[in-house]
Design a binder for these strands. Structure first.
Lengths: 211, 211
DNA sequence: GTTATCGGTGTAACTTTGTTACATGGCGAC
DNA sequence: GTCGCCATGTAACAAAGTTACACCGATAAC
């Protein structure tokens, strides 16, 4: 039920690092498991064992497996958003778009299960709550506006928000198909070339007027 | 182990419709469950009950749940491919592309769980085998070449295969985000408008030279 | 005609996993 | 010092994938 209890009985904590912070420990263990062993290995028991607590701890701090997965979902979007923010700094308009696309693909390929939890149904039964989806979208609002701003000074015409959304959909499409094993290319180098060409094509489609 | 046993003891079957064909019955039941109740409800027991047999039947004909899901996977691509084939007939180049995109989105939204099994990890533990992925790609080879052919007579330049792949990725990106609840628009009408605009933008990106 | 073999079937059990009930213990409040 | 809260652990329950085993009917062999 109660999913956020970060401030427990210890109301005065001069050094927050001292507290065990069971919730963070469990979440770290869960992310570690899902990254290293996949979604199937993410069981309440395995998480509890890795976190050094009993299964009850997962229910105390996350309300159940769903709550834990939702925390993984949100954690993923925060990290993903931070990575994209870093990649999107400096450089000029169109270069920034290219870098964001490359960083997007790199992060997704490096964290395939995490990405699947965020955008697919990697964990059965789990559906992100409205709040979680909203926060996920908020993460992308940052990206979307960054892209839009970087684009506005370029040679692109059209509504910035719609263009950023279009780029997002296209990039996600390439990455999602590649992760699903549906890419036609057999080598990673070839897939990267295809992705890069796709990025150029996507941007090309945004150079003209909306229609 | 043995997944295909369509020819059993009855070597001579003057009227194939007479045979019970347990395998087809089980598969039909599974597809029905996954379409109407989602991936979570797809249990070996529920499928067996719906098919009017015991759980052993699923193991006899599909080798286990994985084999059953793989059959669903393949069945989905066959139906999906047939739908796209129907939608892509007649009409001229760019119109065909638009119709294919619309049919693609319509099928995916009408069969969300099935689509998730085919392109996401809707069922835990299941990973399509190499043969299944190959057959799925073969289904799309039909689409890809159809698109490429329909495009070749149009005003589009570039390698047909790459362009068709690009359109596929873009369409899948929009549809996949919409199915994940990540679309920014709140009404289905608005989402359709965004998708249509995206289709135009995707095609626009293919009008110029490759780079 | 009798018998052996093979393959599809059902029952029942085992294992894993999500979940919950209940008892315990530590900590602050009064 | 006592009470109450709440995080925790143990143990149990229910659901689901899987497997062992016995059964039965048809076909083939003799």
């Amino acid at each position: 039920m109660a999913t956020t209890k970060s401030s427990g009985t210890n109301t005065f904590r001069p050094f927050p690092a001292e507290t065990p912070d069971t919730r963070a420990t469990i979440l770290r263990a869960a992310v570690s498991i899902i990254d290293s062993q996949g979604a199937t290995a993410l069981t309440v028991r395995s998480v509890a064992a890795a976190a050094g607590c009993s299964t009850t701890g997962v229910y105390t701090w996350f309300g159940g497996k769903n709550g834990l997965v939702e925390a993984i979902f949100l954690d993923g979007f925060r990290r993903f958003g931070a990575t994209l923010d870093r990649a999107g700094r400096g450089a000029e308009a169109l270069v920034r778009v290219d870098r964001l696309g490359a960083a997007y693909r790199r992060w997704a390929l490096a964290n395939p299960t995490h990405y699947a939890v965020m955008f697919g149904h990697a964990v059965p039964d789990y559906q992100p709550s409205a709040e979680a989806r909203s926060e996920a979208r908020a993460t992308f609002d940052g990206l979307v506006t960054a892209v839009a701003d970087s684009i506005r000074v370029g040679s692109i015409h059209g509504e910035p928000f719609e263009i950023a959304n279009h780029l997002w959909a296209g990039i996600h499409g390439y990455v999602s198909l590649e992760l699903a094993g549906m890419a036609f290319e057999t080598t990673t180098a070839a897939r990267k070339r295809t992705f890069d060409a796709g990025m150029r094509r996507l941007v090309t489609g945004c150079l003209g007027p909306a229609d």
